[in-house]
Write a protein that binds this DNA or RNA. Structure first.
Lengths: 240, 240
DNA sequence: CGAAACTTTGAGACCCTTCAATTACCGTGG
DNA sequence: CCACGGTAATTGAAGGGTCTCAAAGTTTCG
């Protein structure tokens, strides 16, 4: 399942002594449809979660960073695919390890549930983007999303200038499948953000944020780290 | 939070003696941004969950039916809006009732978590639809989704002919905001499904399914009640 | 029955996609 | 270290799908 971070969720200690595995970019950790026997933790690198349709279409659901938990499912099989974006180190445990860890410990259990809710909120955000935002807006959100994830991952303060330079290790197709566009449109939309003076492209896998306030304005996002990141909006009857 | 059904989730007994409230169509049960003090249960009718953007855009996240739980959130405030679609009866309890109910009872707690996972899977489905499917496909999925929810709600067997006639109590705008289109496009796409012989419109708030196999084919959905409703798809590297 | 709201339909515009060609990037081998 | 080849990214031109604006038709409800 999608994204899930909170540095130091207590239940993550089940991975402390867990066996590790290294993945090269493109390596698949979880194939959709496989029995959901294990749970994972990203130690280092970046992985991508996605859902496939029968005809090969793919919706990328999120990117996972160090400390993120992987393997959320209620069903007996995974219904999503997880693959490495960069060289990645993963810790893995049988599902029963986690179940036992959560069983007796209400604190761990609360932390786990809180994580599940965070994942859910991320999915709601994604649905809002895919359903309501334009191409440029989606890319603006994507840039801010990545910045936010790097910030969480590194513990950098929000105003750190380092966060203005972003690595984009995934391909344009990966980005496209995440934001619900085609790769050419992703290129063009990045180009438009650049023309507008919001970002600057530095090679195809790196960009600089030039105007973060402008990006936030375009994205309609107040702050990616606050719980309710969309303002309430007008409350009048939407049923016209 | 979105959808969540499983007839007879044990923890729903917290609503057994709970105060009830009646809502007329359009009445708002939860305003996004309010303190998340209560949890709810749909007793009768239909409500709609949505998320608003600052400029008034709205993404409908799902429709809730009798026995559905309402009020999932990890944050101190609701980040979604819930309003009645039809005349609706709602039971409500303070959050602490639910917390206490879940505290000592692993079975109830498991059921609750399972529900949260179902909600998450629904959101993943929604994201896939919004990001990857065409207008016609989204409408086909929507019709099958409604049929599925009615089926769960009534306990009707899958092949019951009653399920071929569907009520659509929500407005075209509501549908549009759910499937990420404009209301005119919803109308036109329904028209195209009708021309294709898949459905038949019977007034603006009722339709008949003429070719359910064709709808499923178009939607790319095997079966809405099975856990993994999208076939796995091809497994080759999506990174071209 | 009549008015208001909602739905459907039409025409034109716009945004994103498709298809194609060029350019940039990157790993390999000389 | 540079040349080379293959892959990925960008850019261009044309097409299609959805949106916008507008009007006609239908449903709902007082």
């Amino acid at each position: 399942m999608p994204v899930a971070t909170s540095p130091g969720d207590v239940f993550l200690d089940v991975f402390d002594e867990a066996p590790r595995r290294e993945l090269a970019p493109g390596d698949v950790l979880i194939h959709a449809g496989e029995p959901a026997t294990d749970v994972f933790n990203v130690i280092d690198g970046m992985v991508m979660i996605s859902r496939f349709g029968r005809d090969g279409r793919r919706q990328v659901l999120g990117f996972l960073f160090p400390d993120d938990f992987v393997g959320l499912t209620a069903t007996e099989t995974y219904f999503f695919t997880v693959e490495a974006v960069t060289p990645t180190v993963i810790a893995s445990r049988g599902r029963e390890f986690l179940d036992q860890r959560l069983a007796g410990d209400p604190v761990a259990e609360q932390a786990f549930i809180a994580m599940v809710f965070r994942v859910m909120e991320n999915l709601v955000d994604l649905a809002y983007s895919l359903g309501q935002r334009t191409a440029r807006e989606r890319l603006a959100v994507f840039v801010l999303y990545l910045r936010h994830r790097y910030r969480l991952s590194t513990g950098t303060p929000d105003d750190d200038r380092q966060l203005l330079t972003l690595e984009l290790p995934m391909s344009r197709t990966d980005i496209a499948d995440f934001v619900g566009l085609k790769k050419e449109t992703v290129s063009r939309s990045f180009g438009q953000l650049e023309s507008a003076g919001l970002i600057e492209r530095a090679g195809s896998h790196r960009l600089r944020i030039l105007d973060i306030a402008g990006l936030r304005e375009l994205a309609g996002v107040v702050d990616f780290s606050s719980p309710a990141r969309l303002a309430p909006g007008r409350r009048n009857g939407a049923r016209q």
